[in-house]
């Protein structure tokens, strides 16, 4: 059940994930991550490749089941009611994940219908998405024929068509050119204004510095620290995000990492 007094849009406690890898045996990809993202907040998960960012986001979006811990999206437990969680979030990754043989309009119609939009409401939502993301020139062409930037715009429209209170973006600017990347950053900023909670992962420091209200530093499956840039500066005594990141990683490697 949703608690109306709770301002947390995303909350995770001790979230962990263990895989059985044929080559490496048992792999602890995420080792007890705590996370609290508020409504209308942009929260960045910053970390190197293999740190556990994507696995964390996949658990929060119900793609993977956590091995341990608990996570709530808009007050709904991901393990207890994953279907309701999926209704309340929009998810986007750098690979766009569009069905290549569907057109942009068909993609939006398919997702809209499954999100409970029908008839005029559905068509109105699609028309708004076409206007908002300027899909008119290519939205009726098959996705396989679109450029990367065009695919990304259709993909964003798909993720927010049902106006979700929570957006989870997995390295959304990876592989995008300068213009498409800039469009994505503008889109993320616009969601803050709309009151949506945006959780996104990145390893691009400048992106995190510019966009995030708060930043979580993830390393080796652990959340080393989380807070606003000023809070992280105070925590480490360093000025720049790159220095902060290095300091936290060195502490973790030396066994002093604190979550």
């Amino acid at each position: 059940m949703t608690d109306p007094t709770n301002t947390s849009a995303i909350r995770a406690e001790g979230l962990a994930k263990t895989f059985h890898d044929p080559q490496r045996g048992v792999v602890e990809a995420v080792k007890g991550v705590d996370l609290d993202c508020r409504k209308g907040e942009i929260f960045g998960l910053l970390g190197p490749n293999g740190a556990g960012k994507t696995t964390t986001l996949r658990m929060l979006s119900t793609i993977l089941a956590p091995t341990a811990g608990r996570a709530l999206i808009d007050g709904v437990d991901v393990a207890e009611d994953p279907l309701e969680v999926r209704r309340r979030l929009g998810f986007l990754s750098g690979s766009t994940g569009l069905y290549p043989r569907l057109t942009g309009r068909e993609t939006l119609r398919y997702f809209g219908r499954l999100h409970g939009l029908e008839g005029e409401r559905l068509e109105a939502a699609i028309a708004r998405a076409f206007d908002a993301f300027d899909l008119h020139a290519f939205g009726d062409g098959r996705c396989e024929a679109l450029s990367t930037g065009q695919k990304q715009r259709v993909s964003i429209a798909r993720a927010v068509l049902h106006d979700p209170p929570v957006l989870i973006l997995d390295e959304p600017t990876t592989g995008l050119d300068i213009m498409a990347s800039s469009d994505m950053i503008q889109f993320i900023e616009s969601r803050r204004e709309a009151g949506t909670c945006v959780l996104f992962s990145t390893h691009i420091l400048s992106e995190a510095e510019r966009l995030c209200d708060r930043i979580g530093i993830v390393y080796d499956g652990r959340m080393l620290a989380a807070g606003s840039l000023d809070e992280l500066r105070a925590m480490t005594g360093k000025e720049w995000l790159e220095e902060i990141f290095r300091e936290l990683v060195q502490r973790a490697d030396a066994g002093e990492g604190a979550a």
């Binding site: 209704r87 499954l114 999100h115 979700p164």
Partner: peptide, 23 residues
């Protein structure tokens, strides 16, 4: 921020199966 409707057609397994199959 409005929440999506709770009576979304995902509720029925068979209805969902037919929607996926059609696509």
């Amino acid at each position: 921020m409005s929440s999506p409707p709770r009576d979304a057609p995902g509720a029925g397994v068979l209805r969902a199966a037919f929607a996926v199959a059609r696509k």
